[in-house]
């Protein structure tokens, strides 16, 4: 049945991300793709997910399409509480209370460190010079990466984005791997998955290096390897991700009314 369904790679990525969010969890989503994935989960299999935004909007769902910002009017029209950043990102996220966060990445490396600050094209070195391309900065993603019990990274799977070592760590994953994260003393547990437009990567339990855990029906292990900037290992139990169901696609498209994920 699902083989006949037509969907985009972005939609598959959003659905696979949404499947990482479980019913009843306290969850925080960033704007754009991660918000769509989160509200898809809520509309589909996790109706009791308790979602918050960075500035402290509680209990709201988007109205009239994808919000322009995390607290735009489209996400302010059916809230039960408006608070503030110290409440949402501090009391609920940095404290360790939030179960799961979803963040995006311009660049991500083999230990799940995320760069959204800038592209230098080389290692920065001892002197911090301006980037060739300035990106959006860490926003709340650093706070989510530091404090949430676990977080999921979403990124388009391209070789230039999937690098051996990010030039700048905006939001920490497992740093140099192994127990590096514990040694810093983060409250949160680190990234549990990188969901891409080609498949799913998960960290090795000891080394914390991300491995190829699953591919999508339209991708392959070879395609993922060819589009990854480090020599990615394939997990022992690697498998194909189940295709989206009709129910899932309908739920996603209800959330993605403006069709952001269907643009080519």
């Amino acid at each position: 049945m699902s083989a006949s369904l037509s969907y985009t790679r972005q939609e598959m990525m959003a659905i696979a991300t949404g499947r990482e969010i479980h019913d009843g969890e306290l969850a925080i989503f960033g704007v754009g793709l991660s918000m769509l994935a989160g509200y898809f989960a809520q509309a589909c299999h996790a109706p009791n997910v308790r979602s918050i935004t960075e500035g402290g909007i509680f209990g709201a769902t988007p109205v009239g399409g994808l919000p322009w910002g995390i607290e735009c009017n489209r996400i302010s029209s059916n809230a039960v509480s408006f608070t503030n950043a110290i409440d949402a990102l501090g009391f609920l996220v940095a404290s360790g209370r939030c179960d799961v966060g979803v963040i995006g990445a311009a660049q991500v490396d083999k230990f799940g460190n995320v760069n959204t600050t800038g592209i230098w094209g080389h290692e920065i070195g001892n002197t911090y010079t301006p980037p060739v391309t300035r990106l959006t900065g860490a926003g709340g993603a650093n706070d989510i990466a530091s404090g949430a019990r676990r977080f999921v990274i979403m990124a388009n799977h391209e070789k230039k984005r999937f690098v051996d070592k990010v030039e700048y760590i905006s939001s920490p994953g497992y740093l140099n791997g192994g127990d590096a994260r514990e040694r810093i003393g983060f409250i949160g547990g680190g990234p549990s998955a990188i969901i891409t437009t080609l498949g799913i990567l998960r960290p090795h339990s000891k080394t914390k290096e991300f491995e190829l855990a699953a591919w999508f029906s339209f991708s392959s292990i070879d395609e993922i390897r060819a589009n990854t900037g480090w020599d990615i290992r394939v997990a022992e139990n690697v498998a194909q991700v189940p295709d989206p169901t009709e129910v899932e696609l309908a739920a996603l498209r209800e959330v993605d009314k403006t069709g952001m994920l269907r643009k080519k």
Binding site: T117, N142, D143, S146, I169, S170
Partner: peptide, 11 residues
């Protein structure tokens, strides 16, 4: 307990 262990602190 945030910004530590990242280039926000180191740069």
């Amino acid at each position: 307990t945030v910004n530590i262990g990242s280039d926000i602190a180191w740069r």
